[in-house]
Amino acid sequence: MLGRDARDRRERCKTGIEGLDNILNGGVPRGNTVLVTGSVGTGKTSLCLEFLVHGSNSNEPGLYVSVTEPCDKLLKNIIPYDFFDESLITDGKLHFIDLPIVYERLGLEKAEFDFEEVAILISAIASIVHELGIKRLVIDSITSVCYRLKSQENIRDFILKLGSVLSEMGCTSFLVSEISPAEERYSLYGVEEAIADGVIVTGNLERRGDLLRTLQVVKMRGTMHSRAKYVLDLTTVGVLLVPLLKGGSVAGGG
């Protein structure tokens, strides 16, 4: 019993997404590294942005590290949230950084990183987090970083070290990972999901001709949580979630 109590006492980082915080029994245990994974267009970026915006609205500065898409383009396409004000950025509560620019500054120009370069990258991210007092970090996507790491050991090393450095600073991180819908695992290399403290999966579900967007928390260290599938809607009031109806034995529930 003691174990369970201790676990539930871990301080939470409330994502601010009400449905998700309910699924997680109050939020993500602070300092966790969470893999947000799913096929294209399922809402990964939107979910992560919302996590950051809620944080920066409640005195937890956020950093979005963009790898695949330039930040200014991303900001142009952001859902016009009722709770998002550009002043969050100008006031320095919400930061956006393009990782390719960081690579350039660090002289990491190679297409493939070795052990040493991984260490340089981690300490660069860590010092940004430290200097800006970042409490919530998003890397979108980790898959693109992993492309440069090539070997499973390097990927393992990267996520493990990054996770522990961030955790020590009390920073809760969402790492976006891209997978195709048919994939049995939750990440491209299969190691990311094992090392991460949490895995949130977004997806599409077809049911008798209707297409639904779904979200499922597959794993979250440090808290009890629902493992059920939820149906998700991306709205101007943020991500909304309701349980996926099972309806007894309705066929095609997937």
Partner: peptide, 16 residues
């Protein structure tokens, strides 16, 4: 048949 979406839209209007 999209009962989940029905609930989501109601939720949206309430939240808004």
């Amino acid at each position: 048949t999209m009962l989940e979406n029905l609930m989501l839209k109601v939720e949206y209007l309430i939240r808004r």
